[in-house]
Amino acid sequence: MKVRVLYRGQTKELEFEKDRVSAGEILRALHLSKEYAFVVKDDEVLDDKDHIKDGEEVRVINAISGG
C-alpha cells in the first residue's frame, strides 16, 4: 500500500507491504519518535495506534528544531 505524507513542506510517498499501517509505523518509517512528532489526518491528531488505509494522505509534524 501507499501513503502520501506531507512532511516539512514536501510530499513523500511511503510504501508498505500490507494493507493498513498505524500512525506509529508512519513515524518509524520516517525515523521519527512519538516523543517529538505526530501524525495528522483530516485535521485530526492521530493516536499511535490509529490506522491509515491505502491511498490516504497524512501530514507529519516533527517538533524538533535546531539552532
Binding site: 516539512r8 513542506g9 519518535s33 516523543e35 517529538y36 509534524i61 516533527n62 524538533i64 528544531s65 535546531g66 539552532g67
Partner: peptide, 22 residues
C-alpha cells in the same frame, strides 16, 4: 514554518534533543 533553517542541519542541539528524547 515547519521547514528547518538550512544552516541548522546537523546542529549538535538536534543530536542532544534526539538523545534526550530516547
Amino acid at each position: 514554518v515547519e521547514e528547518e533553517c538550512p544552516f541548522a542541519e546537523g546542529a549538535s542541539s538536534v543530536e542532544y534533543k534526539r538523545l534526550l528524547s530516547q
